[in-house]
Design a protein around this nucleic acid. Structure first.
Lengths: 193, 193, 193, 193
DNA sequence: GATGAATGAGTGTTCATTCAT
DNA sequence: AATGAATGAACACTCATTCAT
């Protein structure tokens, strides 16, 4: 019966809470199996309150993906400007971001259709980096770069899901593991020859 | 339109058509965005006809995944019994199956929640194989096997989606590529030493 | 695939079988919870066969009720023509019919909307009989006849359902019981006075 | 029509209205012939509004029966605790409740499958009462109690439907009538003897 | 006489979204 | 800032019935 503003209520707080609950639910149940009614129930507000802060279910989901992507490319941009930053370190920082934002990562990397674009862009970045460092990985032929980048993207994707976000391995360990799979052997064989 | 049997109608054909259209739609739009009404429209029959051949939307989707999984493990089982079958060949045949069944693969590998289990099982198979062949890949330490298998799974997943199912590369080429990334260098360095 | 007449098939037999199964199902599950598909499944024929012999679900149900009513009133008519037939015997014969046709009785007396009419007509008959025999039941005042008939109808209805059709008591016993409830005591008190 | 809240709308009123219309329709047309669409049309709201207040068609129907049963047994319990309450008065109060709640009675006593249980329980109550009062009805032999109770149940059932709910006779009159049929004669014969 | 195949017309239910307070 | 109340637009599924063979 009683309507209107709740005591102690605060717009920004409600919006933040709704966002958090939405992230939790989207990340575990996916877009279609997350209902507005679930989100508002979790945030202990009513449905119209949701529309006070977000345009629609779709737009909120879109915003979350947008943020994930911006975070991601902000990190990458930052690193590519640091001269001499090693590829392994780049990957580690990427994984570090995933580990620090597991729920958003689940959404942006697995639940969303926008993830296709994200991954494509990541692959491009990888190609750029590798392209500039072929001399460091001299068994890497120029025409391999694309497939290596794609393969690496897949590895990161899977390893993040099964080992990083499940807290079985750290970002640092996984970056090392990936590098020993993808690039290190060469160094050894160089040593041998 | 009049009720009853259509001229020249044939049950098996209708069922097959519905299945095909369902596969097409599920594979491109996913489970939730594929409506029964879409499927029957594509097959040019009415909704009740769908239920003449399938129990429910869910059960059809489930059946498609079931088939994908059985095909997959049938192939793997068959190969593991052939003594001396190389890992690369196993991967190639796997990719070959994906290439021959692109739509079912999209469903079983990307659209379905059951895909988690499928991939887990594939990883296990990879581990078994690698476990029995450590000597062949002697830079592969025993405790690496799990992470290599996971990484490989991710690579296959991604490469299948972006290069194989888009007809950019053949199963054979991709299997070779993957092997040169994951295992071959070692062989060379062995030769060198 | 194979269509057309079954070997050993016989129209009248199929019709009879369908009728029987329909009676079974209607009597236990009621009209709305009995589907044509249930009936034909029980009779091991297909749905169009049903329509070969019956116009519709509704018309079959209607026919069954029709038969029940005709049987019933045939019995009553017959008895009313036999001079000197006691009311108790009439009731006994009625119950006897119910006991001999338990399923049809369930339909005609409890499952059908037509049962309202049947019961009304039965009540009328009872009134007629009692009206002609007031002198035999001299504690029965003329203005009681209607209510006694209604009450008796209810008793018969209930007793048939719970004691007769469940084989706990015979038609004869129940007719006696009813009479000792409704009419006999008077005789005793007469004796007493 | 525009979406959202109606002017002067009030939830409890809508729920009550839906309930009432449901009772009206269920009681006259029965469960299967009453569609949600009929109920909401009668209440001048849309289908989703129905689900705002009731879980499902089935659960609403079930709730109505539940209420009928609780009312009924509350009344009976109350009376059995009053020492010296005459059986005739008990029946009268029962009929009184039916007369005051004709639609709910139609549902609970005739339309529902749960009515079987209700009637069984009523019969048991009757048996208990009669069992404690055999001396008052001394032509009533102990082994008659069950059949008398069943018969009485049937009489009540029928008389309620045809005379009470149609406003032809009052609860008081009908209770008297029933008693003069079932028990009174004895009193007279007692006087006589 | 009987069947395989198909459909018209519902029927209960859900969900994102919106209006009035 | 927030809520109570309501709805438009689907959506999966069912059932009696009918046509072509």
């Amino acid at each position: 019966m009683a309507r209107g503003r709740k005591v102690n209520s605060n717009g920004e707080k409600s919006k933040q809470l709704l966002r958090e609950k939405a992230i939790e639910l989207f990340s575990t149940n996916g877009y279609y199996q997350t209902k507005i009614s679930d989100i508002v129930k979790a945030a202990k507000v009513t449905q119209p309150t949701f529309y006070l802060y977000f345009e629609s279910k779709d737009s909120l989901f879109h915003d979350l993906n947008e943020q994930f992507q911006q975070d991601l490319f902000h990190i990458l941009e930052e690193q590519l400007q640091q001269q001499g930053m090693q590829f392994q370190k780049v990957i580690e920082n990427l994984l570090q971001y995933f580990a620090s934002n597991p729920l958003l990562t689940k959404i942006g990397l697995y639940q969303s259709e926008a993830s296709y674009t994200v991954k494509e862009k990541l692959v491009e970045k990888f190609e750029q980096i590798l392209d500039g460092q072929v001399e460091n990985y001299h068994n890497l032929q120029r025409n391999d770069i694309h497939i290596v980048s794609q393969s690496l993207m897949g590895s990161i994707e899977r390893i993040t899901d099964t080992l990083l976000l499940t807290n079985r391995k750290s970002a640092k360990e996984l970056a090392e593991d990936l590098f020993s799979i993808y690039f290190v052997e060469e160094a050894e064989s160089v040593v041998v020859s």
